[in-house]
């Protein structure tokens, strides 16, 4: 499965990528929402988006809302440095919100698993 990772912090992005590649996902990285949009257009195979919340210009939540407005149905997982509840309260449409901490390497794959198995089958 192909995943888009959006994070303005290079190291955080690499870290997320390492965790996902370890799960044998194919990862595309983008440094901001605009670059993320471009990658999504070029790579129609992407099936999930993992984005950081706190980014300059366009935040993770704004990115999510923009995608929905454009009619995207891709599942969207938000990464945040704070409590996930806050972000979920702000944008309940998010498929999942995972805290960026030491447990992220376990929590993110678990969240992806839950999100993907909750999707209606497209067959």
């Amino acid at each position: 499965m192909q995943i888009l990772v959006v994070d303005d912090d290079l190291f955080a992005g690499e870290m997320t990528t390492a965790v996902l590649e370890d799960q044998c996902y194919q990862v595309f990285q983008a440094e901001n929402a605009i670059e993320g949009m471009e990658v999504l257009n070029q790579q129609p195979g992407i099936a999930l988006i993992v984005s950081d919340l706190n980014m300059p210009l366009i935040s993770g939540i704004e990115f999510y809302r923009e995608l929905k407005e454009q009619g995207s149905t891709l599942p969207f997982i938000l990464l945040t440095g704070d409590e996930p509840e806050k972000a979920l309260a702000k944008e309940p449409g998010l498929d999942a919100c995972v805290m960026k901490d030491f447990n992220m390497p376990e929590r993110l794959p678990a969240a992806i698993h839950v999100v993907m198995s909750a999707l209606p089958s497209r067959e």
Partner: peptide
């Protein structure tokens, strides 16, 4: 707000790396 984000990112990424 630049500084806020810089500290935020130190905080978050720092936490991820233990």
């Amino acid at each position: 707000s630049d500084l806020h984000r810089a500290f935020h990112s130190l905080n978050g990424t720092g936490k991820s790396f233990g």
